[in-house]
């Protein structure tokens, strides 16, 4: 995966290394398709409990010597997309000089600073994680029912603690991995799956991702 220079004017912040790889591949596809003009530099802050890290990172980023033009944050919705968005907003408010977006996926523009800031929660409208959206893109795939049946069967055995007493979206990671297990040259990294075409990046399920990257790197739609 090719990465832009660290001092890129476009900065994307994601939760962990898997996200870094996935969204790195995603923007590679967008760049190849001519849908974005440039790559954003992606930083992962090491997991979900990242309030302090996010505040420190952004506080250090804003005053850096080479101007930042766009900052994007992508977070899993988890159990409540609105609550997750509110939580990110509260961190952004703690950073001096940062505009705080008010709508999920839309960029807030600070004209004086020439800086736009956006937060994408995935999925934006229901509980879930990145894999939930990937499964949306695979909804019509013929092995979809097989995957569902497999995960349901495993879950019903009660032998997988990870699935016990958890919201349904917890199983989306398992569903996607079961799907990937059925592909040629099995690799469970979804960034690789995206690069190999096993996950159709151009499916409408990813439209909000595309718009977000366009807003971040081209200021389109902001």
């Amino acid at each position: 995966m090719e990465r832009p220079p660290k001092d890129s004017p476009y900065q994307l912040i994601v939760e962990g290394p898997d996200d870094l790889f996935f969204f790195g591949e995603f923007q590679t596809q967008l760049l190849k398709a001519g849908l974005i003009p440039d790559r954003a530099y992606i930083t992962e802050l090491g997991g979900k409990d990242q309030t302090l890290e996010l505040r420190k990172f952004l506080s250090g980023l804003i005053p850096r010597s080479k101007p930042v033009l766009g900052i994007g944050l992508i977070r899993d919705a988890d159990h409540d997309p609105a609550a997750t968005f509110t939580s990110v907003q509260s961190v952004l408010r703690q950073v001096d000089g940062l505009s705080v977006p008010t709508v999920i996926g839309k960029f807030k523009v600070d004209a004086a600073r020439n800086l736009r800031v956006g937060v994408l929660i995935i999925p934006p409208d229901r509980p879930g994680i990145r894999e939930t959206v990937c499964l949306d893109a695979l909804a019509e795939h013929p092995i979809g029912p097989c995957v569902d049946a497999f995960v349901d069967c495993v879950s019903e055995t009660g032998s997988i603690p990870y699935f016990e007493n958890k919201p349904d979206y917890f199983k989306d990671k398992g569903r996607l991995l079961a799907y990937l297990a059925a592909q040629e040259h099995t690799d469970y990294r979804i960034g690789i799956a995206l690069a190999r075409g096993f996950i159709p990046w151009d499916h409408t399920a990813f439209d909000s991702f595309v718009r977000f990257f366009q807003g971040l790197t081209a200021g389109r739609g902001v």
Binding site: K56, G60, L61, I62
Partner: peptide, 13 residues
């Protein structure tokens, strides 16, 4: 916070 972030994430200062 800004010093901490710049140092940890090696952001040019």
């Amino acid at each position: 916070d800004a010093i901490a972030g710049a140092v940890k994430y090696e952001i040019e200062v």
